[in-house]
Design a protein around this nucleic acid. Structure first.
Lengths: 226, 226
DNA sequence: CGGTCCGTTGAGGCCTATCAATCGCGGTGG
DNA sequence: CCACCGCGATTGATAGGCCTCAACGGACCG
């Protein structure tokens, strides 16, 4: 049981009535996950909907090749586990805390009831799913379409999409080279070589661990270079 | 306006009431597309839901690199254009008739009304979307996970998934080497070299243009070989 | 100080793209 | 009927990208 105010602020629930907020607040629980801890494993029966409140949650799959492909990084307001909750076939991927994170949990039964009972809930879900499908499609195009350099550029674009202004664009999540490699489907060494070159050329850099891209024009250049 | 019987048989509508079937039959139109003709272009405003009745429809995106990535081949009973219809942002990809095909069309307004008015309609949509998200995720893993050989094997698996029995597994759609290349994100020549080798090894072959894989065990072997 | 994690660099080799040329086939027009 | 053309399949040669293996340095921590 958590604060109504917290619920009301979540973009996912913002359009609902005060009654709905109250109902939700009584059925959401807060849980803390230390960096690296698993939220769930692929194949597990899906029992909960997760809403990221603080930190970042990594959703990934371990491939037969031994690689790990990062399917998405979810941050404040993002929902995880919906697909599995609705079709009831178990989680299609694993999730772990990419940083120390707190999430809000809702039990499966409650969520299903919520979808039916409250106007706008199902619509919100549909909209979310559509957006995600577009995102996934773009990822597929990237993975199938070009070299590692191109794919890396696209990933940076994705993370910079939200930032504004003219100066350097900061990536809002701490990412290791390995993380990048897992996102573009490449090896660490390859990623390092490319990013080192970009760094030498002044296109990217980092302050106190936070990565940045020089400016918006640079960001465009990264993907058009090949 | 089409036959009620036709509507009733579509898996997508099978669970609905006779009233719903009648309502739908009055709002669906049939249209023929010659092989190669465009159903719609990416970016176009979405006005219709498409249901494949006969033939096969190819959904694809033209990438900046000049390549074309096939996002999916849709056959009897499959719906196309739902994402765009619901979020209203235009089609995220193009579609063309991969063979001579007939499709059933429903106007956007009608479809949206249908979703709200008939019990089970929204649920059917959700289920369909979930399944597609799982499919897309698998595709992403494939594209990001291994070499062309692995990806080709996975594509064959996908097409053979529906066939049963012990003998050779026939691929139910006529596909050129270029089509395969466009599905796995590779060049024609690469696909040809791999498939020629498989053919020499007796793993695959073709009768009167129809491609087959030797048996189920072979199918497994194709992807585990590397 | 040893251990772990991350970043980095180098050498070598496989895989895939690229470019170019050829072949078979069906259709078409003369 | 035959020459020609367009399309898909095929093959070879070559270059370059990316992986693989291996080793090393630095930061942080117990």
């Amino acid at each position: 049981m958590i604060d109504v105010e917290t619920v009301r602020k979540l973009p996912r629930f913002s359009g609902l009535t005060p009654e709905a907020h109250k109902w939700l607040s009584e059925r959401l629980a807060r849980k803390f996950f230390e960096k690296g801890k698993l939220l769930f494993l692929e194949g597990e029966d899906s029992s909960y909907l997760y809403l990221v409140e603080r930190g970042a949650v990594k959703v990934f799959r371990s491939l037969e090749s031994g690689r790990e492909l990062i399917l998405g990084l979810f941050r404040y307001g993002d929902a995880i586990g919906e697909v599995a909750l609705i079709d009831g076939n178990g989680y299609p991927a694993s999730a772990s805390a990419h940083e120390d994170s707190t999430v809000l949990l809702m039990r499966r039964e409650d969520y299903l009831y919520y979808l039916k009972a409250f106007d706008g809930a199902a619509i919100a879900l549909l909209r979310d799913l559509m957006m995600r499908m577009r995102t996934m499609q773009r990822r597929m195009e990237d993975l199938g379409g070009g070299g590692v350099e191109y794919r890396l550029g696209r990933v940076l674009q994705t993370f910079c999409a939200a930032s504004k202004g003219d100066g350097p664009l900061y990536i809002p999540v701490p990412l290791t080279r390995q993380d990048f490699a897992d996102m573009v489907g490449a090896r660490v060494e390859t990623v390092i070589r490319i990013m080192s070159r970009w760094q030498k050329e002044g296109l990217i850099g980092h302050d106190e661990g936070r990565l940045w891209v020089r400016d918006r024009a640079t960001l465009e250049a990264l993907v058009h270079s090949e």
